[in-house]
């Protein structure tokens, strides 16, 4: 009993900041620029949302969606074949170990450490200030993660299925697409969702590589609001809530997958 009360209590405590954000997004400025500790708005208003929508905020949301989709697509397209190759083939000279070690270093390396030369790479490709450039840069975070995670899932697909198909004369591509991918689907979906969340929340590269305001992603725009020396808490909260709903929804979808990711990390 104590356990249940404690669990609910802790959970409520950790959610207060979120409740505050939701409530503040509906408060007129006079209510949050005050010394009151009332969480719920007395005089709810939709002004902040209206201001954001009139300000073309949907456009920024669309940018975030485009970047997230692109990041997911590219990381799966490059990550799945790589994970398959590492799991199924004997590579010479322990190349797989070297490769995975390198993937690990990239996964752990601070993005800022690569940011300066990346700037030059993206400029050389003519991709500065484009979503495609940001999608490429995001691969630094997404691809190691996708390979790492998919590797575990591919290893879990019994090779005997493929061997059976091979006896039937199925070619490699047919095997991959008709046997491995369907069996991998839960893993692919989980990976996709994590990469999408990662990209949705990514800030540093968006700050550095996107210059035109109408191409900003949501976190990059939120940062410009935070840096103002004013207390725009209502607008920020509304913005924060809109930016958070998709990920909160996604986490509800894949909570089981989250535990799974962790056990993959254990491999």
């Amino acid at each position: 009993m104590i356990r249940i009360v404690a669990a609910f209590g802790l959970c409520a405590l950790s959610l207060i900041p979120l409740v505050w954000m939701v409530a503040t997004s509906f408060k007129p400025p006079a209510e949050y620029v005050s010394t009151s500790i009332a969480l719920w708005p007395q005089d709810p208003t939709l002004t902040h949302y209206r201001v954001l929508l009139d300000g073309g905020m949907w456009r920024l949301g669309l940018n975030s969606v485009v970047v997230a989709l692109g990041t997911v697509g590219l990381s799966l397209l490059a990550g799945l074949p790589a994970a398959y190759a590492l799991a199924r083939f004997q590579l010479p000279k322990r190349f797989d170990i070297v490769f995975l070690g390198f993937v690990l270093v990239i996964k752990l390396a601070p993005p800022i450490a690569l940011a300066i030369p990346l700037y030059q790479v993206l400029r050389a490709l003519g991709l500065l200030d484009t979503h495609l450039g940001l999608i490429l840069a995001n691969q630094i975070l997404a691809l190691p993660f996708a390979i790492w995670m998919l590797l575990g899932f591919v290893r879990d697909v019994p090779y005997s299925f493929e061997e059976a198909a091979m006896l039937d004369g199925a070619g490699f591509l047919k095997r991959l697409l008709e046997i491995v991918v369907p069996l991998l689907m839960p893993g692919l979906v989980a990976t996709a969702v994590f990469v999408a969340i990662m990209s949705w929340n990514e800030f540093l590269f968006a700050l550095l590589f996107i210059q035109t305001p109408s191409k900003f992603t949501l976190p990059a725009f939120i940062a410009t609001l935070i840096n103002e020396d004013e207390t725009l808490w209502g607008k920020l909260s509304a913005m924060g809530l809109i930016a958070s709903l998709p990920v909160l929804f996604a986490v509800g979808l894949v909570r089981r997958g989250l535990t799974r990711e962790v056990s993959v990390d254990q491999h």
Partner: peptide, 21 residues
């Protein structure tokens, strides 16, 4: 397969979207 197809579609769509205006 369908996911892959969709992902590919998304990437192509993107390429269209990011062409310089």
């Amino acid at each position: 397969m369908r996911t892959m197809g969709k992902a590919l579609g998304a990437v192509l769509m993107l390429a269209g979207l990011v062409l310089p205006a």
